[in-house]
C-alpha cells in the first residue's frame, strides 16, 4: 500500500476518537480494590497486624513499669521499656505490610496480571503508586493496632511522641515497599513472602527491633547498624529519649531507600522488556 486517504469518515465508531485516561489511569476503583485485596489476605493480616501485637504483649507487658531513663521512674514521667518495644513492633508491622504490598507484584507477574495490565492504558507509575498506598493502608492499621494495645496496657507518652513515632514507623516503611517491589520484579514466585517473611524477621533481629542493639555483642552491633531495619527503628524511637538526632540512622534510611529504589526501577525495566 502507498498512501492513506487524507480524510474521510471513520469506518466505524469502534475506531473513532478516544481519550487517554488522566493520571495514567490512577483511580479510586483501582486503589479501593487493591486495599480490599490487602485486607483480604489473612496471612498478611496475621503477620502485619496480629503478630506485632502478640510479640509486643509477650515481651513488652512485663516492662510496663521499667524506665528506660536511669534518672527517673515511669511514675515520674519517663518512658517505659514497654513503650520502646511498642514502637519497635509498630515499625516491624509497618515494614511487613509495605514489603508484602510491594512483593505482591511477584504474584501478579506470575499470574500474568502485569501483562494483562499492559493491555490497558494503566501507566506503570500509577500502578506502583497503588501498591505503595495499599501497603501504607495496612501498615497504618498495624501501627495503630500496636499503639492501641500499648494504650490499653498502660503505656503513657506525650501526644507528640505518639504522633512523631507513629508517623516515622508508618512512612519510613516506604523503604520496604521499595524492597518488596525490587524483589517482586526480580523473583517470579507466587510465594515470595514465604521467604521474605523469615528474611525480614532476621533483619528485624539484627537491626535491633526485637532486642536493643546496644545489648548485643559488639560485632553484632557493628553489623546491625548496616541493616535496613536499624535506621528506621532508631528514628521511630528517637522521640522517646529526646536525645540528639542520630545521623547514622538517617544515613542508613537514605542509603537503603536509594538502594532499593534504584534496584526496583532496574528490576522493573528488565521485567517489562521481556514480557
Amino acid at each position: 500500500m502507498t498512501t492513506l486517504p487524507a480524510a474521510g469518515p471513520a469506518a466505524s465508531t469502534l475506531a473513532g476518537p478516544r481519550n487517554v485516561p488522566p493520571f495514567g489511569s490512577f483511580n479510586a476503583t483501582l486503589l479501593g480494590i487493591e486495599i480490599r485485596r490487602r485486607f483480604r489476605n489473612r496471612r498478611t493480616l496475621f503477620f502485619t497486624v496480629a503478630f506485632p501485637v502478640v510479640m509486643f504483649l509477650a515481651f513488652g507487658l512485663q516492662y510496663r513499669d521499667t524506665s528506660i531513663d536511669a534518672g527517673r521512674t515511669v511514675a515520674q514521667g519517663a518512658p517505659s521499656v514497654a513503650a520502646f518495644i511498642m514502637i519497635s513492633m509498630a515499625v516491624y508491622g509497618a515494614m511487613m505490610a509495605s514489603t508484602s504490598a510491594g512483593g505482591a507484584v511477584a504474584i501478579e507477574r506470575q499470574l500474568g496480571w502485569s501483562r494483562q495490565l499492559r493491555l490497558t492504558p494503566l501507566h506503570p507509575a500509577a500502578n506502583i503508586s497503588v501498591k505503595i498506598l495499599g501497603g501504607l493502608s495496612i501498615g497504618l492499621v498495624a501501627v495503630l493496632a500496636t499503639f492501641a494495645t500499648g494504650l490499653v496496657i498502660g503505656v503513657r507518652l506525650p501526644i507528640h511522641v505518639w504522633i512523631v513515632a507513629g508517623t516515622a514507623a508508618w512512612l519510613g516503611s516506604l523503604v520496604f515497599t521499595a524492597m518488596g517491589l525490587m524483589v517482586g520484579y526480580l523473583v517470579p514466585s507466587e510465594n515470595v513472602m514465604q521467604f521474605m517473611g523469615p528474611a525480614l524477621a532476621f533483619l528485624a533481629f539484627f537491626g535491633g527491633l526485637f532486642q536493643p542493639l546496644d545489648q548485643m555483642a559488639k560485632p553484632l552491633q557493628d553489623i546491625g547498624v548496616w541493616t535496613p531495619t536499624y535506621g528506621l527503628g532508631e528514628i521511630a524511637r528517637a522521640p522517646l529519649s529526646g536525645e540528639a538526632f542520630n545521623w547514622l540512622a538517617v544515613g542508613n534510611v537514605i542509603l537503603w531507600l536509594a538502594v532499593f529504589g534504584v534496584g526496583a526501577a532496574l528490576a522493573f525495566r528488565r521485567d517489562t522488556k521481556r514480557v
Binding site: 478516544r18 481519550n19 487517554v20 485516561p21 488522566p22 489511569s25 483511580n27 479510586a28 476503583t29 483501582l30 480494590i33 494483562q116 495490565l117 490497558t120 492504558p121 494503566l122
Partner: peptide
C-alpha cells in the same frame, strides 16, 4: 471487570 473498566477513559 470493574477494576479493568476503571482503567479506560471510556
Amino acid at each position: 471487570v470493574a477494576v479493568t473498566a476503571s482503567l479506560f477513559a471510556q
